[in-house]
Amino acid sequence: MSERIDIPTADGAMPALRFLPEPGSGPGIVLFQEIFGVTDYIQARAADLAALGYVVLVPEIYWRLEDSEIDYSREDALEQAMGLMSQLDWPTTVGDGVAAVVAARDDEHIDGGVGVVGFCFGGGLAFNVAASSDVGVLVSYYGSALPGLLDLADDVTAPSLHHFGLADDFIPADVVERIRAAVTRDGVRFETYDEAGHAFDNPHPMFHHEEASAAAWRHTVDFLAAEFPVDH
Score class of each variant (00 low, 15 high):
68 S>W: 14
215 A>C: 11
204 H>C: 03
87 Q>N: 10
162 H>Q: 11
62 Y>Q: 11
17 L>I: 12
167 A>M: 01
92 T>D: 07
185 R>H: 02
57 L>K: 10
230 V>K: 08
213 S>F: 02
81 A>E: 06
71 D>L: 05
86 S>M: 13
205 P>R: 03
199 A>S: 14
82 M>I: 13
84 L>N: 09
139 V>S: 01
58 V>H: 08
214 A>H: 06
100 A>Q: 06
152 L>A: 08
232 H>C: 13
64 R>H: 00
34 E>V: 12
185 R>D: 15
14 M>A: 07
82 M>R: 13
44 A>M: 12
35 I>D: 04
232 H>G: 15
58 V>W: 14
69 E>R: 13
166 L>N: 07
165 G>T: 04
149 L>K: 09
110 I>S: 07
1 M>H: 08
149 L>N: 11
98 V>D: 06
29 I>N: 00
31 L>E: 13
114 V>S: 08
201 D>F: 06
207 F>Y: 14
227 E>D: 14
21 P>N: 01
21 P>K: 00
180 R>H: 08
178 R>Q: 14
174 D>Y: 05
37 G>E: 08
41 Y>F: 15
60 E>I: 02
74 R>E: 15
44 A>R: 04
169 D>R: 12
56 V>H: 07
56 V>Q: 05
129 V>K: 07
147 P>W: 13
130 A>T: 04
113 G>V: 12
149 L>M: 15
8 P>A: 10
223 F>N: 01
10 A>D: 14
36 F>R: 07
173 A>W: 09
133 S>Y: 01
214 A>V: 05
92 T>H: 06
69 E>W: 11
117 V>D: 05
177 E>M: 04
75 E>T: 15
185 R>W: 12
21 P>W: 08
159 P>T: 01
21 P>V: 04
115 G>C: 09
164 F>L: 14
118 G>S: 07
197 G>Q: 02
79 E>G: 04
97 G>F: 02
8 P>I: 01
97 G>P: 14
8 P>G: 03
208 H>T: 09
62 Y>R: 02
133 S>V: 10
60 E>H: 03
77 A>P: 10
212 A>Q: 07
212 A>H: 07
196 A>R: 01
106 D>T: 11
204 H>F: 14
72 Y>G: 12
135 V>F: 03
46 A>F: 05
83 G>F: 02
112 G>R: 04
163 H>W: 00
107 D>K: 00
25 S>Q: 15
174 D>K: 02
94 V>L: 00
152 L>I: 02
152 L>E: 11
209 H>P: 11
19 F>K: 02
162 H>C: 11
84 L>G: 04
185 R>E: 13
210 E>D: 09
50 A>G: 01
155 D>M: 08
37 G>Y: 06
118 G>P: 03
131 A>Q: 09
136 G>M: 03
119 F>Y: 08
116 V>K: 07
182 A>G: 09
183 V>W: 07
205 P>N: 03
198 H>V: 13
103 A>P: 02
47 A>Q: 15
19 F>R: 11
126 A>W: 09
139 V>K: 07
107 D>E: 03
24 G>V: 09
